[in-house]
Design a protein around this nucleic acid. Structure first.
Lengths: 234, 234
DNA sequence: GCAAAAGTGTTTGGATTACACCCATGC
DNA sequence: GCATGGGTGTAATCCAAACACTTTTGC
């Protein structure tokens, strides 16, 4: 390059890149975020989003998968890029730009374990997030907005719900995310076009009429989208 | 930090961060993208998106403003973060992660000028983008999708249109972006709730009945949004 | 039987669609 | 007058909201 920079070209290779992975799950009808307690400086002892430095030869998506796997042992989970945060002073030890990704997981399938950089792990309802290390509160807020937005035009809600769910669980998820109350009959009319697999199974251990169980029909959905016969919309 | 990395902590500070700024404008009813012809290696002579390395003490948004200003002399333009691209091999000279931003400008107010890193500058219709340097084709496609998405729930179309526009210009913009044909009467009913300033002025130099000119009423829009009386939706 | 939630049908009003028609200007 | 696009009204239809009602289970 022959660009006339104020500083030498080589000096530009003095950044570090980290990746924060926001893992969302659904518990008791609330969207929860997986948090870690930092076991290292800076912000040792503070709660934070799990994140790590990206290896020099590592793709961003691979780093996100790695962090997700380390905490949850889950593989083959869809990861979505959120936003990149790069304020020059966001990290006290140097210029660390961080790229945020998020994943939606079925919380029952996760047994989160503390790892090298965390001595404690917990799920926290998204509306009860405490004060976090770095600019992580900003990252959480921005990413949750992006998640909510995506919930309305991509069928990612089914990544949060158990494999077999009731229509009411689906309704409650949207009521929670969009902070509205929905009418049951109208909600069911609205979702009539979503490709579901209707099981011959019902809820158990409820003290009222058990609800029918459904799954999202990914195969049918894919076909419908390919033929432009359907777009998911909530 | 006491994290047990495969490589030393200091070695992680060997990235470079660049920022690519996609500048969109509207010309002859088509969305155009401002492109530069690279005057430096690598990819010297190829067309590319204007971008630059981010200075070590510079915020991402500031870098985006700087690049936009260098090319267009425009200030105080809204910049939107698109996505970050970080494939390890995307830049032949090292690990350069690039963060894409986009800006929507009124094309009449821009006199794009070639700068140190570009010896030629031109507007190219978004559907006629040639093969570009680096992974810039991917960046353009992803960013245009994000732009289209944003057009449907934020009033950013008015950043592309001239200050005073006709309702048909607005309609054509949406027809172009969403690749649909809309009915004139129905379109006007749909936009009735948008806060417009209706001018006592008309189009000139047209050989048919001149259309009335409108502006978007930013002040009224802001008030409506604050009072939750309105959300933009197309 | 009662409580609690599952599940469905009906009515209504507002939005969307298709279509038809009139208006203002340049030539 | 005619071509061209600006601008508007109407009727049919679809969709979403409000509400009422029946069903199934546990206790």
């Amino acid at each position: 390059m022959n660009h006339n920079y104020r500083i030498e070209f080589e000096k530009f290779f003095s950044y570090s890149l980290s990746l924060d992975c926001l893992i969302f799950g659904l518990r008791n009808g609330e969207i929860n975020l997986l948090m870690i307690k930092r076991d290292m400086d800076p912000y040792k002892g503070d709660w934070a989003i799990p994140g790590d430095l990206v290896y020099p030869e590592e793709d961003l998506m691979d780093a996100a998968s790695r962090i997700l796997f380390d905490l949850t042992s889950l593989k083959n989970i869809d990861l979505h890029q959120s936003q990149t945060f790069g304020k020059p002073d966001r990290h006290p030890q140097g210029r660390v730009v961080t790229c945020a990704y998020f994943a939606l997981v079925k919380i029952d399938e996760v047994n989160a374990v503390a790892s090298s950089w965390a001595n404690e792990v917990k799920w926290v309802p998204i509306h009860e997030i405490p004060s976090l290390a770095f600019d992580h509160n900003l990252i959480v807020e921005s990413t949750f907005e992006i998640l909510k937005n995506k919930l309305s035009y991509e069928p990612i809600c089914f990544d949060l719900l158990p494999n077999k769910f009731t229509l009411n669980e689906l309704q409650q998820l949207y009521e929670y995310a969009f902070n509205v109350e929905l009418n049951k009959a109208n909600f069911r009319k609205k979702i009539k076009s979503i490709p579901f697999i209707e099981h011959n199974e019902k809820q158990t251990n409820v003290k009222h009429r058990p609800a029918k169980l459904f799954s999202f029909d990914y195969g049918k959905y894919k076909k419908l989208v390919e033929n432009k016969d359907y777009t998911f919309k909530m």
